[in-house]
Design a protein around this nucleic acid. Structure first.
Length: 449
RNA sequence: CGGGGCAUAGCUCAGUCUGGUAGAGCACUGGUUUUGGGAACCAGGGGUCGCAAGUUCGAAUCUUGUUGCCCCGACCA
């Protein structure tokens, strides 16, 4: 992508409405644009990040055996009357009436709908286990949306729903999502710690919130410090095998959010020097809730004994539009965002320091072609701007590697590669630049897999 | 929903207290010179001061209403 042809409205000054760093940087770097309270447009650069986050989630959900589909944003109120939640959900639910005076709602979640779909097709225990997920926009009319897309009213969410014959197998399904989440967040460069959580209006008795520690987090959390450095299951993990040891290992160390914490237990089970009391951002949540929906909605299957039973269900959410600011909170400095390669909107920014100079233009065009041909996601800053402005923009938007090309270096046959993360620079011969960038970028795409 | 605050050029703001016909920086347009960390100079364009009523000879400024946005709290799969 040529910068001159792209749409990247960066702001030089801090927008006054933004308080926390991720909101400020997402606005300044031209990722999002607020359209109303809690409603945001995703500008091209931000949308690229969102798509990369989505791709990682899809890969890891599929790997864990979940199957992707797509349900509508609007739902019939009748469906919610079946579960009893139409009246329970309150003002947070956006209710809509269509031209025929039918009651609709903009879905805040999809348990009812997935259960309805399940019951209309699935009859036998032989079709279980089943885990269906989709990535769709949701709406919750929060009393006070804030912090940009961290807590917006409309938000993009991955929600998966598992169906199993009994509790034991439902816990296996739960474990698959649990392990999948550990991998998913790590691939985005996040350290997300599973913590005991309240189940809220969704119900159930087994639930974890996946929390990224950040000063600006909305909830207070308490956990064992060793959880921060625990190794993540690798790509070799067998989702068809027994995952209990991994889950047990992670849940054996104390971790709870403020709603669930028992300070006495925290202090008893965690040595004083390992007690971590911090704030955190909830980026995902897993629930087991049994037959809370399948029973009242009569979504039953026949078991091996010929009896009708209501499957045990679980649901598993990841807030994509919250994950992005969480990544920014976790990776930034005074100059701007620092993206991990895996979700960076571009992997390399090619900076021409002297647009219009014959040699410089020629060298840049050649490098640009080479990078694209090699499959590197590159943005070429071909604008007629001062060097300082280009460096500042590159730093602000957080592209992991800057390939800097100027007349001075070209005279020596060299270009410069700057690492956004730590500011290190290396001069490389022009002919070596592409190879060196491949060496840096390609392994980093999969970082922790 | 309770409490507090803001609304003036594309952005960040000054001007409001004390009424007299709207400004700065950045951005934008044209030109010249520049070019390795947000370049300089010259010349320009751009605002019915959120909206509506009221007070007044006269309102960005005072009064009332209204809308939008932000912050704190309660709320939050």
């Amino acid at each position: 992508m040529r910068f001159s042809r792209f749409f990247l409205p960066v702001l030089r000054e801090d927008p006054k409405e933004a308080e926390i760093v991720s909101h400020r940087l997402m606005l300044r770097a031209g990722l999002i644009s607020q359209q109303a309270t809690g409603l945001y447009a995703w500008l091209p650069l931000g949308y690229k990040v969102l798509r990369k986050v989505q791709a990682i989630i899809e890969q890891e959900q599929n790997r864990a055996g979940a199957v992707e589909m797509l349900m509508p944003t609007l739902q019939s109120a009748d469906l919610w009357r079946e579960s009893g939640r139409y009246d329970d959900y309150g003002k947070e639910m956006l209710r809509i009436v269509d031209r025929h005076k039918r009651d609709l709602l903009y879905g805040p979640t999809n348990e009812e709908m997935i259960t309805a779909i399940f019951r209309s097709y699935v009859r036998s225990y032989k079709d279980l286990p089943l885990n269906l997920y989709h990535i769709q926009w949701k709406f919750r009319d929060e009393i006070r949306p804030r912090f940009g897309t961290m807590r917006s009213r409309e938000f993009l969410m991955k929600d998966a729903y598992s169906f199993d014959l009994d509790r034991e197998r439902a816990v296996e399904a739960y474990n698959r999502m649990f392990v999948s989440y550990l991998r998913t967040f790590r691939r985005m460069g996040l350290t997300a710690i599973p913590m005991r959580a309240e189940t809220g209006p969704i119900g159930g008795d087994l639930s974890h919130e996946f929390i990224v520690l950040a000063e600006t987090g909305e909830s207070a959390v308490f956990c064992h410090a060793d959880l921060m450095n625990k190794p993540i299951p690798g790509p070799e993990v067998d989702f068809r095998g027994d995952l209990t040891p991994i889950v047990s290992d992670w849940t054996s160390l104390y971790a709870a959010t403020e709603d669930m914490v028992d300070m006495e237990e925290f202090e008893q089970s965690v040595p004083a020097d390992k007690r971590l009391a911090a704030r955190g951002i909830e980026v995902g949540q897993t629930f087991y809730f049994g037959d809370k929906y399948s029973a009242p909605m009569q979504a039953t299957v026949t078991n091996a004994d010929g009896q009708e039973i209501a499957p045990h269900m679980g649901s598993y959410g990841i807030g994509l539009t919250r994950v992005v600011p969480a990544i920014v909170e976790a990776g930034h400095d005074d100059n701007g965002i620092i993206w991990p390669v895996s979700v960076a909107p571009f992997e390399v920014v090619l900076i021409s320091l002297k647009v219009g100079d014959g040699d410089c233009d020629a060298a840049c065009e050649k490098l640009y072609d080479g990078l694209r041909t090699a499959g590197i996601d590159v943005i070429y800053d071909d604008r007629e701007q001062g060097a300082g402005a280009k460096f500042a923009t590159a730093d602000l938007i957080g592209i992991p590697y800057q390939l800097i090309v100027g007349p001075r270096g070209l005279k020596a046959g060299e270009v410069e590669i700057k690492h956004r993360k730590d500011g290190t620079r290396e001069n490389v011969p022009i002919a070596e630049a592409l190879r060196r960038l491949m060496e840096l970028v390609v392994p980093a795409r999969l970082e922790t897999i």
